[in-house]
Write a protein that binds this DNA or RNA. Structure first.
Lengths: 189, 189
DNA sequence: GACATTGTACCAAACGATCGGTTTGCTGCG
DNA sequence: CGCAGCAAACCGATCGTTTGGTACAATGTC
């Protein structure tokens, strides 16, 4: 079996238990492979496995967000499509975010740069759509950041409250929140 | 030295390294206490230490949010004061959230109920202020949830991007976002 | 076709290190 | 003395990792 076949299993393990919490015993049990076999596919050990998972996530982002947002259709339609993919990725808010969980504990030092890159390209892609829709560039970036704040925050709160609908509500209204016209001077006080 | 004196150190350890990542060796080094001394103060071991930290956080929430929001002053002023305390708690967005980090890995199973309770009372307190300001109760609760989504999300994104000002911006505009009048039917599509 | 060679996938067993947790024995002080 | 408080050694378990090997299909050589 090629190693790619194990990446989805690794993905769900790491995003559930985190870097420190995902032990090789758990991985061995979940994949059905002995520890030595795991080192055959991933010579770099646990760190190598997470790197593979992150590459896999990179591809996912490329296909389901970056390429999509830069493609055809109205901005509204593109953003909505993105939200559908997000909804699927996080299983409707019941599954944690890999990048968020890797930003904590031991994983933080190891994968910070990679995670940062993923996040930045995501924000940039959203901002590009908004610029294309006529928004000022600075405002577009700000709203791109706000989009990821909402996504990440909704995931955390939804899971801590056992309330997935809270996440779904947030995602569903994301496109119109992003595209709503600037009012006054953005609530200047 | 009474055990309370070590709780702040434990707090910063656990919110930095998470439950799995915070080893007794790290705790011993950070507190300057031997393991035996740690078990003298916290007979229940690591789990006992986290419980103490969570109690400490409970008191913090009680004093700096619940009591404050139920107190005197205009809703706007109370919410602003709360945001100042939040800003201080998270060191301007440079420090992670304890409850978020405890919701992952092994800690999730152990402390989920406690964390959920903390979050719920926080949301409830914000909602009460909004109801008092004349908002519909359902909308008030929704905005209370959104407030915590923004806080948690901003923390995650700010740290992954090494951009604390992103957090500060989010917190600073939180009061007026919470209090802004309902427009149309909340962006009905 | 027969046979050695190579490469891939896999694993049991064990490594040293460190884990969370416990016990021992000594110290300083009222 | 009595006892609270703690450093240090120790416990079994588990950590991530490594060694040494088996089974088997593909390839090359005669």
């Amino acid at each position: 079996m090629p190693k790619e076949d194990y990446v989805p299993t690794l993905f769900s393990l790491f995003r559930q238990y985190g870097y420190d919490g995902t032990t090789l015993s758990k991985i061995s049990a979940a994949t059905g492979l002995g520890k030595a076999s795991l080192y055959h596919h991933f010579p770099g050990g646990k760190e190598d496995m997470v790197a593979s998972v992150l590459d896999h996530s990179d591809c996912w982002l490329q296909a389901n967000v970056l390429h999509l947002l830069a493609g055809e259709g109205s901005p509204q339609a593109r953003l909505q499509k993105m939200c559908e993919h997000i909804h699927e990725l996080y299983a409707g808010g019941t599954q944690p975010c890999l990048t968020a969980i890797l930003a904590m504990g031991t994983g933080r030092d190891l994968f910070h740069d990679k995670v940062k890159g993923l996040l930045e390209s995501w924000i940039g892609a959203i901002a590009n759509v908004l610029v294309e829709s006529g928004f000022d560039k600075d405002l577009a970036i700000k709203r791109g950041q706000d989009a990821l704040i909402s996504i990440q925050g909704a995931l955390i709160v939804a899971q801590n409250l056992d309330n997935a609908s809270l996440f779904q509500r947030t995602i569903q209204q994301l496109p119109q929140v992003l595209l709503h016209p600037e009012e006054g001077s953005e609530h200047k006080q």
